[in-house]
Design a protein around this nucleic acid. Structure first.
Lengths: 209, 209
DNA sequence: GTCTATAGATGGATAGAC
DNA sequence: GTCTATCCATCTATAGAC
């Protein structure tokens, strides 16, 4: 199963678990606005009216604007983490470090391109969460980061990889995927699969002994 | 001359050309707030009072909040571009592609770490500029990107480098430096020089044949 | 060039009817 | 669960004195 065929099409898929139609529509509109304009520049009025509802309707489904951001961040991060885990679980257990890291890089890059708006909010808008919500998201982020770092370390230990410093190398590898959300616009020629192919090759070469 | 010794210390140095003390102080406070909270979450009242002035005083020096952002972005981008050019001009003209690209990577990475707040605003807050200002900044950004891409292309042409695609490789190289501003906090152990060393090595390895 | 005072607009959130 | 109406805080920017 290739990465490209494993996933459906963006936010509707990511937020499919939200059963109430209005709640889901509100969240998807909020997501688009947060990604395009930023959390603070987005008004609750805008989110509500673009969802076909009155300004007050939002508060039936979410207690505040920040709560919507948290919901987006929580689903986004959880989904990304789960997919990384699933991808690793699917590989032949005798696979070498290079093969395992390539799967991680490909999956992580593809996610950031395919789900650009979710990923953009997850990478850039976390500062607007309150302290508790921020801490909860940070826990998931650490899980992801540790997962990547462990693979790099394993590769270094067995001699497949060679880097000046495992921590900086891990940072560099994740940067390749994360920075996509700063410039990438879907539907303008570049496909997520193309990006994943290119960046996985480059990232792997960066750490290979 | 090493990169580290070539530069003084952050925003005061970058905005040294602004002679009026209040105007300079306002801009530096605005920079810190924009970098920490984002453009929209920053209030003009906050910028003024943290500069030791009344809310109205700002408008004597800048016509609007957006004008401050533009000033920061213009000085930031111009300075970064000029330093890249100066660094390249300083190298031995017989230097190979690897050596030239290493200087670019080192300089670009060091800039993003040493001047994190300026760089963060330059990378993340441009969406809040008006159309004309945005276009002016984008022109400078293209100059920088083309400069990096040309070096990668030259290295590929002469056989020193080998990449699946020059455009994606250029993106990846710049991402290494740019993504620093998302997580880097000065004074917490990691030095800009250390970062520049590590990322220049990793970036070079990524494209070397 | 700096101040106090305030205009004028907007936005997050709530009240209460249906 | 959705609406209309509105409160109240906040924010950008301006007016006018010193």
């Amino acid at each position: 199963m290739t990465v490209a065929s494993a996933h459906g099409n963006s936010p509707n898929e990511v937020f499919a678990a939200i059963e109430n139609a209005s709640a889901r529509r509100l969240l998807i509109v909020a997501l688009d606005e947060f990604a395009a304009r930023g959390f603070h520049a987005t008004t609750t009025r805008d989110v509500s009216t673009k969802s076909g509802l009155s300004p007050a309707a939002m508060y039936v489904h979410y207690p505040s604007k920040e709560a919507m951001l948290f919901q987006i961040a929580l689903v986004g991060h959880s989904t990304a983490r789960d997919r990384l885990r699933a991808a690793l679980a699917e590989i032949d257990q005798t696979a070498g470090s290079a093969q395992r890291l390539e799967v991680i890089l490909r999956e992580f890059t593809f996610w950031h391109a395919e789900h650009t708006t979710v990923a953009r909010v997850c990478e850039y808008e976390l500062q607007h969460l309150n302290a508790e919500h921020r801490a909860e998201i940070d826990r998931i982020r650490r899980e992801i980061e540790v997962g990547v770092r462990d693979e790099v370390q394993r590769g270094v230990d067995c001699g497949e990889f060679s880097v000046p410093d495992v921590r900086y190398a891990t940072m560099a590898l994740t940067s390749l995927a994360i920075d996509i959300v700063r410039w990438y616009t879907p539907g303008t020629g570049v496909t997520p699969a193309e990006l994943a192919d290119n960046l996985a090759v480059l990232g792997l070469k960066m750490v290979t002994a």
